[in-house]
Amino acid sequence: MSLRKDLLGLMRGDSQADRVVPRSGQSARLTLATSAAMAFLAVFAMALSMASGRLADRWSDALAQSSTIRISAPPAELEAQTWAVLTVLEQTPGIESARALSDADQQALLAPWFGPDLPLDDLPIPRLIEITETTDGYDADGLRLRLAAEAPGAVLDDHSRWRTPLAEAAGRLRILGWLALVLILGATAAMVTLAAQAALSANAQVIRVLRLVGARDSYIALAFVRRFTVRALTGAAVGTGIGLLAIAILPSARDTAAILTGLSFSGTGWLWPLIIPPLSAATAFTATRIAAFRTLRGLQ
C-alpha cells in the first residue's frame, strides 16, 4: 500500500498487469474527453489570470501614480502661471515630482498627429506639467482649489486616478482566475473519482478472481490507478494543446490594455500551461487511489 511503490509501478508500467482489468470503452472515453475539456478550460483560466495580472501591474504602477496639469493661458501669462503651478506643487504634500514638458517634449507628443513640422510657437498650445505622486497620493480637491487661486488657466487632469478601481478589479480577476483553476482541478478529481468508482464496481467479479489467486489490494488498485492516470494525462495534454492553440490564434491588438485582446500569455508565460497535464495526472492518481482503496475495503 506504499505510495512510493505505487508511483514506481506507475512509471515502470506493466503491460501484463494492465490487461487483468478489462478495457471499458465507455468510461475510458468519458475520462479522456472530460480531462481534455477541463484542461482546455484550465488554459483559459490561466490566461485570464495572467493577463489580468499584467494589466493590474501596469495600471497600478504606471498610471495610478501620475497625473498632468494643463495650463491654457495667453502666451504672455503662460510662463508666469507655469511657475506659479510648479510652486504650488512643490508645497503640496503627496507629490513626488513635477516636471514641465519642454517644447521639444510637446512636439514629440504631437508629432504622430500633426507631423514633425508643427509650428509650435504660432499655436496656442497649452503647457503640460507631469506629476508623479507618492504612494500615499495627494488631495486632488485641495490642489484644484489652490490652483484656481494661483493659476486660473491650470486644469488638473488626474485621469489616471479613476483607473485605481480598475487596477483593483484586474487584481481580483487574477485571483478569480487562479480560483477557477483550483475549481477545475477539484472537478477533475470528482469526475475521476466517480469514473473510478464506477469502473471498480463494474469489475467486482474481476476483483474477486484476482483476490482468489492471491492478488494484494495494492496490486488491484494500481491496475485501476495506472489506467485512470494515463487517461487523465493524455486527455489533459490534448486539451492543453488545443487551448494553447486557440489562444495563440486569438487576434491580438497593440492596445494591450483591453482585456479581450490581452487574453494571452507572454514570454515564459507560455510555459505555465505545461503544468496542467501533470497536475491533472497527479489529481487523477490521488483521486483514483483513494477511491480504489475505499471501494476495495468495502468489497468482500
Binding site: 501484463q16 498487469a17 490487461r19 487483468v20 484476482l210 489467486v213 492478488a215 494484494r216 496490486y219
Partner: peptide, 17 residues
C-alpha cells in the same frame, strides 16, 4: 477472467504476484 485467453488465465497467479 473472461476477457483474457486461457494461457493468461492459467498464468494469472504469477502475473498478480
Amino acid at each position: 477472467l473472461d476477457h483474457l485467453p486461457l494461457t493468461e488465465n492459467i498464468a494469472l497467479p504469477l502475473t498478480v504476484t
